[in-house]
Amino acid sequence: MTALSPSLSPPARRLPKPFSWPVLVAGLAIVAVEMTLGAQVSEYYLLLAYIILQYVVLSTGWNILGGYAGYVNFGTAGFFAVGCYTTIALEKLAAVPLPLAILAAGVVAGLIGLGTGYLTLRLRGVFFSIATLALAVVLQTLIVNWSFVGGSRGAYVMRPDAIAPFASYVQYLLVVMTVLAMVAVLAAIAIERSWIGMGLAAIRDDELAAEASGVPGLRLKLLATTLCGAFMGMAGAPFPYFITYVDPPSAFSLAIAVNAIAMPLIGGTATWWGPVLGAVLLGFTQQVLTVTISSAANLLIVGILLVVFVTVAPTGVVGITRAWRGRRA
């Protein structure tokens, strides 16, 4: 919802169209750039872009539930890992094409989100949050004990040969992740601008009053939980091909757990572009800093930024810019 200000002329504000053509065009333009430049630049840049886009998907997925409905999912790393291991399990069974593995990962992670939500969303929101925290631990326990996908030893995944028209498999992965990010953002926009987003916003502001206004609280929350889980799972599905060796600590990574929350909260949870901005800003900074300082120190900085933002700037970068522009206007 846009910023509210007292105004004297009150035209009935219309919601913009749920489908965003500009985002689609921008997404396709990025794909075009990747197709033309992807074969010429060093692989480092492709990997960098992949990581940032992966964070765009995670952060956007988190925000569908966290930002729009106000329910905090702490289990991003768990959902991401479910995606990873869906791909690994499928790869052990048959040569499944990547898009199919991504869909499967979305279904599995979405169902886990739905199940967790179904059991806990009737209660206060914090119980859902606590359940997702515990869920990440229990999923890790399951994977560690499941030797078919490598157990605690981990699993090697062979990167297939490049598929035409891509110059390399990494380029293919990057394009796939770009499309996924585009789909996630388009979905977030569609929710934000439709009656679903309005219902979720009502739930976020006052659940009891929302129900009294006819909003089917549990159903909408379950929808958001499922989508949130599904996008996180889909973001994880190509990851095994990206790093080629997956073990539980790399799939259930600390970096993903903290970034998926820090990015939308630092970017701003009220609109779709807050999480995207947060993912790009934080993702880029971390990749640059990793060269100079350790990844643990990196995460420490993210954690501190998260705490600083939620205490002094709860509306995020987007909110700060808006307030700043509002003051100048």
Binding site: A12, G199, A201, V215
Partner: peptide
């Protein structure tokens, strides 16, 4: 609904 405008507050039941 604190973060919705006055008219949006009324639109919620109209939609739901």
């Amino acid at each position: 609904f604190k973060k919705l405008s006055v008219i949006e507050n009324v639109q919620v039941p109209l939609r739901f």
